[in-house]
Design a protein around this nucleic acid. Structure first.
Lengths: 190, 190
DNA sequence: TTAACTGTACCGTCTGGACGGTAATGTCAA
DNA sequence: TTGACATTACCGTCCAGACGGTACAGTTAA
């Protein structure tokens, strides 16, 4: 499942995301994806037997990528809280200007149920965060601010000025530090 | 533009939203909309000459509805701040369980640029809010929390439990009251 | 008379995906 | 070692159906 050289599957996934972002979420055609990926249509359908499978792959890929980024953030900050790692990971994601996850949009457009894995993932993330925090309301607020930021990149409605975004990201970073220290306190008193 | 009895145009818009939410954003076909609205296809195309026009109508309708709700909230709370009215309006929107704005999703799916009016509207709203507030960062945070909540209903990923949602909505209401009192203070010192 | 439709017939294009190849790469018995 | 077969990973073509949109003749309420 891990990659040494880009497999066809991975190239197809990347191509699909690119096509979706360029042509619009609902104009994701298999032909376009195949061409973009440098693969014949037959080859595409070998890797993803149906369009639905391709879209599910796109969604799963999105989740996996975030989980990897989160794991990196958890590993890096030693003794860091999960919420801290989560926020830092999201701040980095929002600050970077890599392509928005149009593949997810494409999946949503085709069938709303296809976001079920995303929903599950978010819910589980929320549970993990809730298990740790001493202040659920504060944690929830941070979580939703992140969701708000993400929705703007997802929908390609970047309404904030750089200044405003900077302001928000700074408070999120502060919130991350608070989360870390709160967890340490907790650990100290146990 | 205001309604006494539902015009064809309005029935079509409603039908389109219904079809979009049931069939998936990208499966919004003109035939289906016409049938759902109890209108012939010719009639549909009489009101909306192209599919793009229909989708634009859907988006505009969404914006208008919010603006109406906001106006009601501004009028009701006498002496209320704009941010207060905005937050109260959004809280009501999130608490009610009317159908999510699938029409907007359909427009987005077809062509990302179609959300430009939404983007503009949000940006203007933000400017209006910024002009009033004494604490931009705090205002921004509330704004983004709302965006986060909205994205969940828009994408039909309602991750929060009722308890969690209640918690967040309560803090938003508190924030609305703070906004009102802050404005009154400001008015008193001028 | 005109605006606001209805109803039907039709067209060109696009799309998912089924299908039948095929070349390269194992696998394994004799 | 080798020949026979199996599997993997594709290629290229074809097609039935859906969809947006056009055209146009007829209808009905104001």
């Amino acid at each position: 499942m891990v990659n040494s050289k880009p497999t066809s599957r991975q190239r197809i996934l990347a191509a699909a995301a690119a096509v979706a972002s360029e042509a619009g979420a609902s104009n994701l055609s298999l032909d376009a994806v195949a061409q973009r990926a440098g693969v014949s249509k037959g080859g595409l359908l070998y890797n993803f037997p149906t369009k639905a499978k391709l879209l599910q792959g796109l969604v799963q890929n999105h989740i996996d990528e975030f989980e990897i980024s989160l794991a990196a953030a958890t590993g890096a900050g030693n003794g860091a809280s999960l919420l801290g790692a989560y926020l830092r990971s999201c701040v980095r994601e929002c600050a970077s200007d890599d392509t928005p996850p149009s593949g997810v949009l494409a999946a949503l457009a085709e069938d709303p149920d296809m976001l079920e894995p995303v929903k599950l993932h978010k819910r589980r993330m929320l549970d993990r965060l809730a298990a740790e925090t001493s202040n659920p309301s504060r944690m929830l607020r941070s979580f939703l601010i992140v969701e708000g930021l993400r929705s703007q990149t997802l929908l390609d409605i970047d309404v904030l000025t750089d200044e405003e975004r900077g302001l928000v990201l700074a408070t999120l970073m502060a919130e991350a530090e608070w989360a870390d220290s709160a967890v340490m306190e907790n650990a100290a008193t146990t």
